[in-house]
Simulated assay, not measured.
Amino acid sequence: MSNVIALPRVLRIGAGALNDLSVLLTDLGCRRPLIVTDEFLTSTGAVARLGQSLAAAGIEFSVFDRVVPDPTTDSLRPAVDMARADGCDAVVGFGGGSSLDTAKAVALLATTDRPMRDFKAPTTTDQPLLPLVAIPTTAGSGSEATRFTVITDSETGEKMLCPGLAFLPTAAIIDYTLTMSMPPRLTADTGIDALTHAVEAYVSVKANPFSDGFALTAISTIASCLRSVYRDGSDEQAREQMMLAATQAGIAFSNSSVALVHGMSRPLGAHFHVSHGLSNAMLFPAVAEFSLPGARSRYADCARAYGVADDGVSDEVAGERFVDELRRLNHDLAVPSPRTLGVDAERWSALLPTMAEQALASGSPQNNPVVPTADEICEIYRRIY
């Protein structure tokens, strides 16, 4: 059976790559982009600097800077309206995962009158859309290289996974200097997010030789850099390696799949507004322990790539060491539990059946080495609380 591999047409990688945006847009034949970003990046002057480089190249542009964390269908509408009113012929997503998710959705919705819920999984959308350039400012989501976006339905509260080639950026700019000012908490959460992507891509039932190579390389790189960059955000070499690893992990899971962690993570964001990376981190050790019996050799490979086991250790021991290391990593990076984060215990318990149902409905748990029941998902939620 063949595997369908899809990548952005162009990746520009390295310090100063942001300066290549005007050349990239010109090469794509785009002269009127909409920059989709957030108010923070506007306040820092980053958007103005980006705009100056475009203006100097004679490229007109519009700016939508009202991206919200965990974007909703309501939050998309003003951006879509701006893209249409200003005659934009491309979308540039500039920011973290929420900005890139918003940009992907806007690039599609600007070409159709259909609602976003029409594009949620299990529907796969491969139709053409406005050219999309992704510029991540965090090292985690990997969204710059994936064929997915995640948007919350404002009416139902459902956090919708929307897959398909329509959401794969046409091009991406990977400039690690944009991550140098990330605070420790964001560094930790996005870093564990990238690790989760790589591990889930590797243990997924949809894993393949192409995605495996990217996943294992990302695991090894993150293991060597994440604690360092959490302790010292000015470590430029570690920042560069983490940025590259996040993109590699994104390529891996985009061409394999994510699994149970992500299926269970999305309801946490929808109901409790826990950031995606943090909710993944909360779940990762418990889900890995649950999934280990279904993929011992694969988790052992992850342990060896990570550096907590060698070839002389049995797969069973190596896999257990990896789960133990995920717990240590959470401790060292001060990952809170839902309880310590302030999530109400009664509301948590009351929502367990709904969250389990939504996790299963996303389709991601079906890619897990051990496919859980709703009751088993509820039990994992209880354990991490």
Rank of each mutant, 00 (worst) to 15 (best):
I5D: 01
P8L: 00
I13K: 11
G14Q: 11
N19D: 15
L25W: 02
G29E: 04
P33H: 04
P33D: 03
I35T: 02
T37P: 09
D38S: 08
D38T: 10
S43N: 11
G45Q: 05
A48L: 08
R49A: 04
L50K: 11
A56W: 00
F64Y: 15
F64A: 07
D65T: 09
V68K: 09
D70A: 12
D86E: 15
C88K: 06
F94M: 10
L100A: 01
A105Q: 06
A107N: 06
A110W: 13
P115A: 05
M116I: 15
T124Y: 13
Q127S: 12
P128N: 06
A134L: 06
I135N: 10
T137I: 10
S141N: 01
G142C: 07
F148R: 04
T149M: 05
S154N: 04
P163F: 09
P163N: 05
G164Q: 05
F167W: 10
F167Q: 04
I174Y: 09
L178Q: 14
R185M: 08
L186W: 00
A188P: 06
A188S: 09
D189P: 00
T190I: 07
G191M: 02
D193I: 12
A194C: 06
T196G: 13
T196P: 03
H197G: 09
A201L: 07
V203D: 13
V203L: 10
S204A: 14
A207G: 13
N208T: 04
D212R: 11
A218G: 03
R227W: 03
R227P: 02
Y230P: 05
Q237Y: 12
E240D: 10
A245C: 07
A246C: 07
I251E: 02
F253S: 01
N255A: 04
S256Q: 09
S256A: 15
L260F: 03
V261H: 06
G263R: 05
R266S: 14
R266W: 08
H271N: 15
H271A: 15
H273T: 08
S275I: 07
G277L: 13
N280F: 09
M282Y: 06
L283A: 07
L283W: 02
F284P: 03
A286N: 08
A288N: 13
E289V: 01
E289P: 01
E289S: 15
F290E: 12
S291V: 02
G294S: 11
R296W: 05
S297H: 11
A300H: 11
R304M: 04
G307V: 09
G307F: 12
D310G: 04
V313G: 00
E316L: 12
V317P: 00
R321H: 07
F322N: 06
D324F: 04
L326Y: 11
N330S: 11
D332W: 13
D332I: 00
V335Q: 12
S337R: 15
S337N: 00
R339W: 01
R339F: 03
L351A: 14
L352C: 05
L352S: 07
P353I: 02
T354A: 14
A356V: 03
E357Q: 11
E357R: 06
G363I: 08
G363H: 12
P365K: 12
N367L: 02
N367K: 00
T373H: 08
E376P: 10
C378K: 15
R382M: 03
R382V: 00
R383K: 14
I384T: 12
Y385H: 10
